[in-house]
Nucleic acid binder design. Structure first.
Lengths: 196, 196
DNA sequence: GTCTATACTGTGATAGAC
DNA sequence: GTCTATCACAGTATAGAC
């Protein structure tokens, strides 16, 4: 938008994007609660108050960080709804979801996992997990048992499970995704064979 | 130790145990950070300061809550070490771990999951996840790939994964454990067939 | 439009009286 | 063993500088 390339004074959009970038890094490294708004402001060369010009409060910064993934999930729900209801629909939906996951997604997912109570506060009834519930409803039979539903959800959640298994270790994100994909295949089979 | 059964005035051990009980409930319901020491003190009919007589700080309360599970894990490591190294050792170890999980464990695990940064602060190099790393080292071949190690760890972590899949829902703990057991069997097979 | 100075409330934690 | 009083610092709101 502007022609200025200087770094002394940024325009609004640039500052906002930079706040989000630095916030994701700090919140991931030290945790959301452990990172004060002053820490964030110092890392950006701003004051606390400046942050409150760009974001209404600390939580809104995280909310913006999470917007992408929810959008992906809405896309998945649309895709499932438009598909023919073949017996292997669950398998195909899981594969599609796994393929849509990039290493870039992992850091945001880690952040979400590490700050569950915060996510619940942000969500306000319209969160990612609720959307996942709709996915399960679309894919599970009406007479599916509670166990079956949990298992189906775990099949989609293998990425989160793989992140859980690798936390506190520096694992290549591609290995995480690859392991999650293998796990999801194994669980899909377990779900398919549930009542045979 | 004492013969008193009155409830107007508690002795030290009773107060301590009651603090732990109420803290687990509040921290689970509202989250650790969202529960102030004043909330906890009010729920107990004490003042904030009294808590600091029984526990050095807020974090130590959680540390005491987590002691049990680590003890279980130490037992698993001893058991594995004493077993003959048969090809199905991993499968048997997973089964043993799953069988040792009670609904009572789930609430503490939920708490641990919901407060990852806190757990990292508490652990100080000697935490449950590090102990799990030793389990994996005992069970995996030396030439196991990073993917194989993640998959093996996910096999033990199916309980955590099932909790992840059921968060924000009121699911019967027995269904959670049953689904986790089915998932662990499926993943054990996937791990066993890794290089066939 | 972008940022800062300053003050307000609530939190975890400490010192010392009873 | 529990209390009162107090502390430093957190997130937040607002008024106003440029």
């Amino acid at each position: 938008m502007t022609t200025s390339t200087g770094h002394e004074r940024r325009n609004g959009a640039e500052t906002r994007a930079e706040i989000l970038r630095v916030a994701l890094r700090l919140f991931s490294e030290k945790g959301y609660e452990a990172t004060s708004t002053k820490d964030l402001a110092d890392a950006l060369g701003l004051t606390k108050s400046s942050l409150y010009y760009h974001f209404r409060n600390k939580e809104e910064i995280v909310a913006c960080l999470m917007a992408d993934r929810r959008h992906d999930l809405d896309g998945l729900i649309e895709w499932i709804t438009a598909q023919p209801r073949t017996p292997d629909l669950a398998r195909r939906a899981v594969a599609r979801w796994m393929d849509g996951t990039t290493p870039q997604h992992l850091q945001a997912m880690r952040l979400a996992q590490a700050n569950r109570p915060l996510m619940r506060r942000l969500a306000d009834g319209d969160d990612v997990r609720a959307a996942f519930g709709r996915v399960i409803d679309l894919l599970a039979d009406e007479d599916a048992s509670a166990q079956d539903r949990i298992l189906l959800r775990m099949t989609f959640d293998t990425i989160a499970a793989a992140l859980l298994a690798t936390q506190e270790t520096d694992t290549d994100p591609r290995d995480v995704i690859a392991a999650a994909r293998r796990a999801s295949i194994a669980l899909t089979d377990a779900f398919a064979n549930r009542s045979t």
